[in-house]
Design a protein around this nucleic acid. Sequence first.
DNA 1: ATTCTACCCTGCAAGC
DNA 2: TGCTTGCAGGGTAGAA
Length: 274
Amino acid sequence: MPELPEVETVRRGLSPGVVGHRIVHVDVREPRLRWPVAEDLGQVLGGRRIRSLQRRSKYLLFELERGWLISHLGMSGTWRLVAASAAWLPHDHVVIGLEGSADRAALVYNDPRRFGSLHYHDGAPAGHWLIAGIGPEPLDAGFDGAYLHAAARGVRRPVKHFLMDAGIVAGVGNIYACESLHHSGIHPHRHAGRVSRRRYDALASAVRRVLTAAIAQGGTTLRDFAGADGTPGYFQIDLDVYGRGGQPCRRCGRTLLDSRLGGRTTVYCGHCQR
DNA sequence: ATTCTACCCTGCAAGC
DNA sequence: TGCTTGCAGGGTAGAA
């Protein structure tokens, strides 16, 4: 489900309802996520106020009065704010009760596929093992063509893989990798080390442009993604290649190709992307 | 050291 | 109608 723009959309939607509120209890109803959720999370978090809600790569970071709650949505995870009296839905795995919110009294983590995760970390998120190795944020200074070009030196794996590697750049998943490569005219199967500096300039700016536009549209809703208030994203309307295999390229009109790259569907134009 | 594959899990759609 | 198969926006561990 969520790449950087979707996680950012969740962060923005959730913030007003959680920041400043105190956690009164935590109910781990199903600890079997990507990694087991600590069953004593309630004892650790209970009584602490949420100071801010931040994002790093595809991780949501709840800054507490002390320590951080680090959440990843995997493929199918969602957070929603509900009234205390709300009925449980299937796959509601973790419930965080909040004080100081009138009708919205609990934060509920739902995740059918359970690829998401939830960790408490006592120090700064950058020190957590899941986050320590992550590369630069694509929307921050420091991410540009020069950086990509240098990082790709001698790398033989496909440039699409390279771009989706969080250690290289944070937050770019399958959808936005396909889109950015199409925007910049780079063939997804090309070896990362065989892309010129000039074309990495184009790729870096395409990544920025695509992610920024997607955030402005509230993310991409393919089947079930929704922001914290339940509204879907609208960026799917602007997708040029993802999900459009067999349809005409919007630039040259030729049929878009569907291939599998590392087990993931990759759509590209064999004419516009070299 | 890099790079590939298999796997974690449920839900849905397509095909038979 | 019901079964099987494959695919889905993620990321890791372990093998090659």
